[in-house]
């Protein structure tokens, strides 16, 4: 009854339910009505077309950062640097978008590719160091995050603006924003980026499941030594995997720069898109399809949370706690599996 595949579907669902349940207990403990709280969350995500548009807008970069983290995970790498890759992607997209004049067919793809390239570059270095020196990618990517943050702020203030706190606006020909979508959703900031994100998910699925290099990525992830013995170039696969992962995260930056904002403000702290991507990927079981589903869930939670203080008086941080607990439960899936197995034995 409980095959491995079923487990892989059950564990995230149970984790989400447990997380929401724990959130309800916390709300109850602090004197809020959990039902009202979750009702406010639901309304905040789907209550009207504006909220719905904003939810989709939030889901878009989540899909891409989730894919970035998931892709690296599949080849045994933990890309905690998606955050920095988002930032450099954002800078690159806005830079190309604001400084070049070209017809849309060239300008828009060029800006998007610039973001992917910048993200890929930011993933390349940790990949290279991991492959050649065996340096743990987690530490390098954490450092790269800070370098990205500070360098991008420097660029925004000194290069792509006239000393202001945000970059120049991108040209209309580089924009993903659409009046049609905005009017449809009561002037939310929804944009065409969601299409890019879905295409990226399909690309990831295709690479991993339908190509021989995807097979190699997964093999290296399962057992680098065996892969090496089987004649695979482990180093090349590690670098390439980080590059592709970085490119996905860079695209998420393009979504923010070309779609949601149309410019890049200087950041005093991280965007958290990359860090949230870790949660998305984990919950999605590191598959393309799972990541899309998980990105929708997190987008709904994050945007819906914004409605909780006004409608139910619950601080929106409750959702952060719920998300943290969901990650905990997914991470501790061993105990959930053990519990499910025990229940099954008792049924017999």
């Amino acid at each position: 009854m409980f095959s491995n595949r079923l487990f892989n579907i059950f564990v995230p669902i149970i984790s989400v339910l447990l997380g929401l349940f724990a959130g309800a207990i916390i709300m109850f403990a602090f004197g809020y009505n959990p039902i009202e709280g979750y009702q406010a969350l639901w309304d905040g995500a789907f209550g009207n077309s504006y909220f719905f548009g904003e939810t989709i807008r939030q889901v878009t970069p989540y899909i891409l950062t989730g894919l970035a983290v998931a892709f690296a995970f599949r080849s045994g790498l933990f890309n905690i640097g998606a955050e920095g890759q988002v930032i450099v992607g954002w800078v690159a997209a806005v830079w190309v978008g604001s400084s070049i004049e070209a017809p849309m067919v060239i300008h828009l793809p060029l800006s998007i590719l610039a973001a992917a390239f910048a993200g890929a570059l930011w993933g390349f270095l940790p990949g290279l160091l991991k492959a050649t020196k065996g340096v743990h990618e987690v530490i390098i990517t954490i450092m790269m995050n800070y370098i990205a943050l500070h360098v991008s702020n420097y660029l925004i203030r000194n290069v792509i603006s006239d000393g202001g706190d945000s970059s120049d606006r991108i040209g209309d020909t580089a924009s993903l924003a659409s009046n049609w979508l905005m009017e449809l959703t009561d002037y939310s900031r929804m944009h065409y980026g969601i299409i890019v994100a879905i295409i990226a998910a399909i690309i990831m699925w295709f690479i991993l499941e339908k190509t021989s290099s995807g097979y190699e990525f997964k093999a290296v992830g399962f057992n680098p030594h065996a892969s090496k013995y089987a004649g695979m170039n482990v180093k090349k696969n590690i670098i390439l995997s980080m590059v592709i992962s970085g490119a996905f995260a860079g695209l998420a930056g393009a979504m923010e720069g070309l779609g949601t904002f149309g410019y890049m403000p200087s950041h005093s702290a991280f965007t958290n898109l990359g860090f949230d991507g870790i949660a998305v990927a984990l919950l999605g079981g590191n598959t393309a399809f799972g990541t899309v589903i998980a990105a929708f869930l997190f987008g709904i939670l994050k945007i819906g949370a914004l409605n909780m203080p006004t409608s139910a008086g619950v601080p929106s941080e409750l959702v952060e706690i719920v998300i943290a607990l969901i990650i905990f439960f997914v991470a501790s899936s061993y105990i959930i599996r053990w519990f499910l197995l025990r229940m099954r034995k008792e049924e017999k």
Binding site: F78, I80, V138, F275, I278, A279, L282, E317, L318, V319, E320, I321, I323, A324, L325, I327, F328, V330, A331, S332
Partner: peptide
């Protein structure tokens, strides 16, 4: 690593 990430989220949220 994942559990550590969850600690980070949880502490800030709480």
């Amino acid at each position: 690593v994942v559990s550590g990430v969850a600690i980070n989220f949880l502490a800030l949220g709480l």
